[in-house]
């Protein structure tokens, strides 16, 4: 464990806490894409198949349970909670995310570290996580103004993989047989997708203005 990875995990955790805060405090999920949340649920379920077989550390197991639990809880809330689901606007959350699932799974069948059940599902979860934010970013562009908590949620979610990139650079120079090119390439794509959001977030922060994404 290195400081970059720990910072990344904490930033990821903060993004989830901000999202839970928004949904539970405001009893509203306006501005949140249910499709992105469903994709994250698939990402964590596909990636943590070894949850009960490989014990790495208490930290590792606890964080996996938190990530799986929170993503499924948010999806449940947005679909079934009688108050929250009323604020879900399916007319703006129209990204056909099943194409992302199919495409990433196909890619994982061809590009993986080893052709085994777990490795293919692991690669699938890495590719899917890289594009999982797309429905959310499209929704924000469509809905124009972004409320503070949603903006902070996306900001932290984008920043966490940026810390992981620093972690991979660090591990590349400090560990001899470290090769995580699947994670690295996907992580770069994932972080790049947030580039314009980071730009508009910084501009709104500098001008102390409301975050607005150009449609």
């Amino acid at each position: 464990m290195n400081i970059f990875r720990f910072a990344g995990d904490m930033t990821h955790l903060i993004s989830i806490l901000v999202l839970l805060l928004k949904v539970y405090a405001t009893k509203s999920c306006s501005g949140i894409s249910l499709k992105t949340q469903e994709l994250y649920g698939i990402v964590f379920l596909a990636r943590y198949l070894d949850l009960f077989t490989d014990f790495i550390s208490v930290y590792n197991t606890v964080m996996k349970l938190v990530f799986i639990g929170s993503s499924l809880a948010i999806v449940w809330c947005m679909r079934f909670h009688r108050v929250v689901k009323r604020s879900y606007d399916r007319d703006v959350d129209t990204f056909r995310h099943y194409f992302l699932v199919g495409g990433c799974f196909l890619l994982a069948l061809f590009v993986h570290e080893k052709f085994s059940f777990r490795e293919v599902f692991w690669a699938f979860s890495i590719y899917l996580e890289a594009v999982a934010i797309l429905p959310q970013l499209i929704l924000l562009q469509r809905s124009g103004n972004v409320d503070n908590l949603t903006g902070q949620y996306v900001l932290f979610l984008g920043a966490y993989r940026g810390f992981y990139i620093l972690n991979w650079i660090y591990r590349y120079f400090t560990e001899d047989q470290f090769s995580r090119w699947i994670s690295c390439v996907s992580g770069l794509v994932q972080t790049a997708l947030y580039a314009d959001f980071f730009y508009y977030y910084f501009i709104s922060w500098k001008n102390n203005a409301k975050l607005k994404l150009p449609a």
């Binding site: 995990d9 692991w122 090769s179």
Partner: peptide
């Protein structure tokens, strides 16, 4: 390293 290497990252 065996490609089924234990994924120690989240």
């Amino acid at each position: 390293v065996d490609a089924d290497s234990v994924k120690d990252e989240l």
